[in-house]
């Protein structure tokens, strides 16, 4: 079972529905008890960084996320769900992130429209052999909606070009994160989610 953490923010059904569409037993979970036995965790997130992290904490699901990360359970953070894994965000400097990944979340470059609300091409880091992005074609387009993105670190496996280099996907051991929305990225997004579910077997 893949647990999609439901801490009461926005449209979290999309991730669950996309996984169910792939034939996976995916469930929205609102408590630690419901998440028990999960072979994979998805942490979605839309809206503001501060609102998401506070909702995650008050729901009690922060502990589910932290335990899964500590135990090496396959974990996928999506959009603000990825951003929350960092130490902090410029969007709300006073609020601390989960700090699982080093670095900060930064505002998108100036001179471009914010939010980036569009499809963009994934640019793969040359050295990366990402399990999440395995089997994708050369020009893979995915859907982004965001005004902030993590800064460049060694964990980055794909970027996109939007007024500069913008982080699109990260990977570290059994932790994956996408700044874009795979559940809203058509066939390409479903292929990415399928790669994740293979890690959860």
């Amino acid at each position: 079972m893949i647990a999609v953490l439901d801490y009461g923010i926005g449209n979290l059904r999309s991730a669950e529905k996309a996984l169910v569409h792939l034939g996976v037993d995916a469930r929205l979970v609102t408590s630690e008890r419901q998440a028990r036995g999960a072979t994979g965790i998805v942490l979605p997130g839309v809206g503001a960084f501060g609102a998401c992290i506070r909702a995650l904490r008050s729901s009690g699901l922060e502990r589910v996320a932290m335990n899964a990360l500590a135990e090496g359970t396959p974990f996928l953070g999506v959009c603000v769900g990825l951003q929350m894994l960092y130490e902090a965000s410029d969007e709300e400097p006073g609020e601390r992130g989960l700090g699982v990944l080093e670095g900060r979340v930064r505002s998108l470059p100036s001179g471009v429209k914010r939010p980036q609300m569009q499809w963009n091409v994934l640019l793969r880091s040359e050295r990366s052999r990402s399990r999440l992005l395995e089997g994708l074609g050369d020009a893979s387009w995915v859907y982004f909606v965001h005004s902030y993105a993590p800064e460049m670190t060694d964990d980055v496996v794909a970027t996109c070009e939007y007024g500069g280099v913008v982080v699109a996907a990260v990977e570290r051991d059994s932790l994956w994160g996408t700044q874009f929305h795979p559940e809203k990225s058509g066939a390409t997004g479903l292929a990415i989610l399928r790669n994740f579910t293979r890690q959860c077997a």
Binding site: I9, G10, N11, V46, G47
Partner: peptide, 13 residues
């Protein structure tokens, strides 16, 4: 109403 929705659910929606 625009602000209320944006604050509750995020500007992106």
């Amino acid at each position: 109403l625009v602000s209320r929705i944006a604050e509750a659910l995020g500007s992106q929606c």
